[in-house]
Nucleic acid binder design. Structure first.
Lengths: 339, 339
DNA sequence: AAAGCTTTTGACACCGGTTTCCTTTTTCGC
DNA sequence: GCGAAAAAGGAAACCGGTGTCAAAAGCTTT
């Protein structure tokens, strides 16, 4: 059944089946108003010819195409790829395809670049990954361009419209509760970068949990990080060198948490005996460092799938939000503090 | 300059500029046969209207679209993403976009699925990442479907046609030479899975280096892995429990190498004092475990870029190959063996 | 058997570009 | 100033689908 250069068109099918283009079109689109006879007849020809409708022609006629876009500036490769898988999962057996577009958050022309991208590609809709998903101007741009969008994030944005979010805050609370339940009292925080919603949410969760248990969080128990390994290393160093050393550290992501592992090692502190550490993301590194890290995992793939489904859901264009539960993944970086 | 719902078309431009569609088309395509006058006049209208040609219409008329595909089944998220970035780099400022399509190597319907995908999307061309890029049937399929393709890989395939490859074999040789130069004699290998070209190349490089120095590689100095963390853990365990323990291990990728780190730790062996370890890939984990791992890095991003450029290069459809040098990234998991 | 419905089908315009081919205008040699 | 060649621009067809609307066919009903 090898192709002989050119693909058959709807005209070829129509001619061979002895019907009109329109009828073939009806068969393709499973129109109800068709006799069983013609349907089977046309389907036979389609099968014989190996006819597949030309997506570009369809897109033109329908004035919409079947391309979903993924806008991301996420430094975590695993997360991005998981989302891609989730989306692919959602659009399997549909005619949709997924176009990726990394964006550079720091570029001053970022918005213009994306505008050009959207103009040029005329996507059906886009998924926006955090942290760039927190950019309201971007969402606004999509709106302007008439491009559907769904934002993924770590919390519902106040004016959230089309959003798929996890519940970072509660999960961090749960993680810190876990530490407190084990007997930890001096628990330190390595924050994510200023201006990131996820960093904000995780910090708030941390502080809420501490406060709920009447525990104080002095300034020397808080370090500022930027989600990178080095900042975790430096931040943890700072925390561990403070006069009253914490017995546990929560880091706002795994990469910084793994920096904290190194900082501990450099000071001859053993994890978890001398220091408990909890990260966030459940990235591969969490499972692969020693000891395996307790961390908070969020269902990235599922969220990607849900976001894509929401995007391609027929009809329902109303604003809507969905929440996805994150989950504490207990491994071996946490223990009760030594008396 | 907000859009008012509908995008302007070539007709709108033509009407406003008082010229024919064709003339506008000429302007867009920078046709040479145009007076300077009309060109500037039309360009003014284009700018004023914010006109951008409809890609679907263009694709239909030109009988080819501007979509590149990325076929991959690579377990290493970082690698896949780097390639994506490289491709995006190459197609920046062109009208191309990148469509991703993870494939499941183990699915019996894999080839049919991809055929359907190619039929449906009519891509301009595809990049194929290893290890699936080693599948000749897949390349054959692309050929049949009239879809351009470039394969990426760890070595030139014998019948390689459109290929961008690194030089895994030589680089592993260099890495092992490095170990030998430091005084290691009992060097063990954790292999990648059977049937993977990269695993083959890396093994051959390893054996070649050992042989070149007259060093023996007994069976108990070779472990079979599958590129996963656990297999590295198990394989290294096996190697380290052998009667004559190796002083150094080369693992066919970083994930297995990090498994080897754990295996060492479980046996109270210190890296690099008691055991040197070298991995392959220069994945993020290599930099983030303790101690930071010496590994072989290959220029994934550059290769992705080159592959994309090759795909969209006008005219030249002749088979061609390019090689990209990998590089030994020295960190702290290697030291001279203890006397 | 004619009238009236419903179901099935086709002719034709259209989506927004490009290509082919032809006409009009300009330029230039003599 | 004239004819020919070159340059500039336009009309209409085309790419491969879908939407509209009316015609044709099939089925009741009286």
């Amino acid at each position: 059944m090898a192709k002989s250069g050119k693909n058959p068109t709807i005209n070829d099918v129509a001619r061979l089946a002895g019907v009109s283009k329109k009828t073939v079109s009806r068969v393709i689109n499973r129109s109800a108003l068709l006799s069983e006879d013609t349907r089977t007849k046309v389907e036979a020809v389609i099968g014989q010819l190996g006819y597949v409708p030309n997506p570009q022609a369809r897109a033109l006629a329908l004035r919409r195409n079947f391309l979903l876009g993924l806008l991301h500036d996420n430094p975590n490769a695993q997360t991005v790829l998981k989302v891609q898988e989730g989306v692919l999962d959602a659009i399997r057996d549909t005619e949709f395809a997924l176009v990726v577009r990394p964006v550079d958050r720091h570029s001053p022309t970022m918005l213009d670049d994306i505008r050009r991208f959207l103009e040029q590609q005329r996507l059906y809709g886009v998924l926006i990954l955090p942290p760039i998903s927190e950019n309201d101007a971007l969402a606004q741009l999509c709106l302007e361009m008439g491009c559907g969008y769904v934002r993924m994030g770590s919390a519902m944005l106040d004016d959230a419209d089309h959003m798929v979010a996890s519940n970072d805050r509660e999960m961090v609370e749960a993680a810190v509760d876990h530490l407190i339940a084990l007997g930890h009292r001096r628990i330190a925080l390595i924050e994510g970068p200023e201006g990131f919603r996820s960093a904000f949410e995780r910090r708030e969760g941390f502080l809420a949990a501490m406060q709920a248990h009447g525990l104080d969080v002095p300034p020397e128990a808080r370090a500022q990080g930027n989600y990178r390994f080095e900042s975790g290393l430096a931040g943890a160093g700072q925390l561990l060198d403070a006069p009253t050393r914490p017995t546990a550290i929560f880091a706002s992501n795994d990469e910084m948490a793994s920096g904290a592992f190194h900082a501990a090692r450099q000071r001859n502190l053993r994890v978890p005996d001398d220091l408990s550490i909890i990260g966030f993301d459940d990235s591969p590194i969490a499972a692969h460092i020693w000891p395996p890290m307790t961390t908070v995992g969020w269902p990235v793939r599922e969220m990607g799938r849900a976001a894509a489904l929401k995007l391609i859901a027929p009809g329902d264009k109303s604003a809507s939000q969905s929440r996805f539960p994150a989950q504490l993944v207990k491994r071996q970086s946490v223990a009760a503090p030594k008396a």
